[in-house]
Write a protein that binds this DNA or RNA. Structure first.
Length: 568
RNA sequence: GGUGGCGUAGCUCAGUUGGUUAGAGCGUGGGAUUCAUAACCCCAAGGUCGGUGGUUCAAUUCCACCCGCCACCA
């Protein structure tokens, strides 16, 4: 038994996430967490909403809400959607909660003590009417190079040139449209990442288990040289800046930059979990307090790799304290909607809450993992979704469960039949099943989700192939004992298939295992070398054929959804 | 613009440390079956492995350049 700390990239607070966000971090993290638990390992699976930053403030303003109230509401919405998708977080926290404030301040003070923080003054655009400093991209104006009238303060979308907001002609606030702007001096804390360059490089050198892509991204950043980075902003919503536990002089109206405090929430979510459950979070996060044997696995989208391999490690390692660093990481590409981007504003694509209104979570979970965007972006289309789900879940798995439990119920009184003895056919099946379970287990351990799903499907097919040949419905007429072997083996396969399906389709698996009256203690992952998997159910063990597991998606459904979501 | 990833059957993707007939699922066509959600099972057709050059006895697999898509950085 080992210990696994698993985190998913934190969903940002400004609105419910779409299926692409789900497929790229939260869902695979959940599948992996479930798999490790089933193997008997100890797992702490953490996630949280990332709530600070200007986009949250603007979204709140647009909704006509106070930012705190907005985040409270959005957090609950996202949490409900995560529950609906059966994401089995041990804790789903909030970066705006107290533990993260305390830890963020703690890290900053430790970094300062280590000589990695410097206060610098810079010039920034201040909007008098908005009563606030404006982030670069919230200043709009005319490009000094190409005269494009809607250039952003950081870059001109027309000519592509990088800009400084003070260069813009006729600058205005993107927030209010006000032109009453001034350039003012403002002080900020800078994290001296450059000083950590060699320590980070040595750590990346040693991180040989990372995917090639992750290491090359990290090396690219290191090769270009780490840049000292401002970690505070002139905002009110966020973590206050402190010094020796008190408000830092001159920083009373500033907060930490969201990119600094957000990853710290991974740790703080552990502290929140401890508060809620009485658990010991430091045992998971501090190598001096029991976390030495923990394997830390992170799931994220490809855009986030640099922050997880370089920026956040600078914070953690720079503190000089023995915090747990990532051991294994899994990065995903994007799921696209008919080859294009999901878009909230244009109502393109399906979002988590809407998806659950259409179909149970298992349908989405299966499709998104069987087609996970592992090697490149993966296109989501309703047609492909319909075909995959109908074929894999309804026809191959669901129908297998249905055909054998119904036959067993009608001919053998809904009890696991006695009589007969397994022969060559069953021996061959046992061998094939064992080989595929070995492969399936390896793919889960390697976090190869597409391959794991394909392997699981292949196992289900083995069951159908077996029944086709054993044909207990034919044997029943002439050789009841042989029919009994077929039914008994088939029922054991049902239980086994459901056990193996739990990480991907937990609800359906539970329905099947409940229908077969399989005790909770007997639902764990098979171990290498387990034998007799096809004859574990006691003779006479009663079961109830479950209702149809997966209803098929009809063409009319697809047509209606296409209309609804603007597909194609 | 720089860096990295990707481009393989109608669709979604494996794979090839260079080597006889390039794989899977879906979709399509045919067959078998009736326990089952008109499901399952078997068989078949389908690809000049993005393009152009190069290295090699041999390249889809290595190299160069080009085209297209994606991401990050500037």
């Amino acid at each position: 038994m080992a210990r696994f700390l698993i985190t998913s990239a934190l969903p940002y607070i400004n609105g419910i996430k779409h299926l692409g966000n789900l497929a790229g971090s939260m869902l695979p993290a959940d599948v992996h967490a479930r798999f490790r638990r089933l193997q008997g390992h100890e797992v702490l699976f953490l996630c949280a909403t990332d709530e600070h930053g200007t986009p949250a403030e603007l979204a709140a303003a647009e909704a006509g809400q106070d930012v705190r109230a907005y985040c409270d509401e959005q957090h609950l919405i996202q949490r409900a959607a995560c529950d609906g998708f059966r994401l089995s977080f041990d804790h789903f926290g909030r970066s705006s909660n107290a533990p993260n404030h305390a830890l963020t301040q703690h890290f900053c003070e430790k970094l300062e003590a280590a000589g990695l923080i410097e206060e610098r003054t810079s010039k920034q655009v201040y909007s008098v009417d908005d009563g606030r400093f404006l982030p670069d991209r919230y200043v709009e104006g005319t490009c000094p190079h190409c005269a494009f009238e809607r250039a952003r303060g950081d870059q001109c979308d027309n000519c592509g040139r990088l800009l400084d907001p003070t260069e813009l002609k006729n600058p205005r606030s993107k927030i209010s449209g006000s032109t009453n702007l001034e350039v003012r001096d403002t002080a900020h804390l800078f994290l001296l990442q450059g000083k950590m360059q060699e320590r980070i490089r040595a750590w990346v050198d040693a991180s040989t288990e990372w995917p090639h892509l992750a290491r090359s991204i990290a090396y690219k950043w290191l090769d270009e040289g780490l840049i000292d980075r401002a970690i505070t902003r002139d905002l009110s919503w966020g973590v206050k800046v402190t010094q020796e536990g008190r408000p830092r002089p001159g920083f009373e109206n500033k907060v930490f930059y969201v990119w600094f405090d957000a990853p710290i929430e991974y740790i703080a979510a552990g502290a929140e979990w401890a508060e809620a459950t009485g658990g010991n979070w430091e045992r998971w996060w501090r190598t001096d307090k029991g976390a030495n044997d923990v394997t830390y696995v992170q799931f994220m989208g490809k855009d986030n790799v640099a922050f997880h391999t370089v920026s956040f490690p600078v914070t953690i390692m720079g503190s000089g304290e023995p915090w747990k660093l990532v051991d294994r990481l899994k990065a995903f590409n994007w799921v696209t909607w008919y080859g294009g981007k999901f878009s909230t504003s244009e109502k393109r694509g399906i979002f988590m809450d809407r998806a659950l209104e259409l179909l149970p979570s298992d349908y989405w979970r299966w499709y998104l993992m069987a087609n996970a965007p592992e090697s490149s972006d993966a296109a989501f289309t309703l047609e492909q979704f319909q075909q995959t789900v109908n074929a894999d879940l309804a026809n191959v798995f669901g129908n297998f469960v249905n055909r054998i439990t119904r036959f067993g119920a009608s001919k053998f009184d809904a009890k696991v039949p006695d009589g007969g003895a397994p022969g060559d056919l069953e021996a061959k099946l046992a061998k094939d099943v064992a080989e595929r379970i070995t492969a399936l287990t390896r793919h889960h351990e390697d976090m190869e989700f597409r391959k794991a799903a394909a392997e699981l499907r292949a196992l289900w097919v083995l069951g159908n192939e077996y029944l086709q040949v054993a044909a207990p419905w034919t044997a029943f007429k002439t050789d009841v004992d042989y029919a009994a072997v077929g039914v008994r083996t088939g029922l054991n396969l049902v239980a086994l298939f459901a056990i193996l399906a739990q990480p991907f389709v937990p609800d359906a698996a539970k329905t099947v295992l409940d229908a077969l009256n399989i005790p909770e203690a007997s639902r764990s992952w098979p171990k290498a070398g387990d034998t007799g998997l096809l004859d574990t159910l006691p003779r006479g063990h009663a079961f109830t054929p479950p209702d149809v597991l997966f209803k098929k998606i009809e063409d009319a459904d697809v047509a209606a959804w296409t209309e609804m979501f603007g597909g194609g």
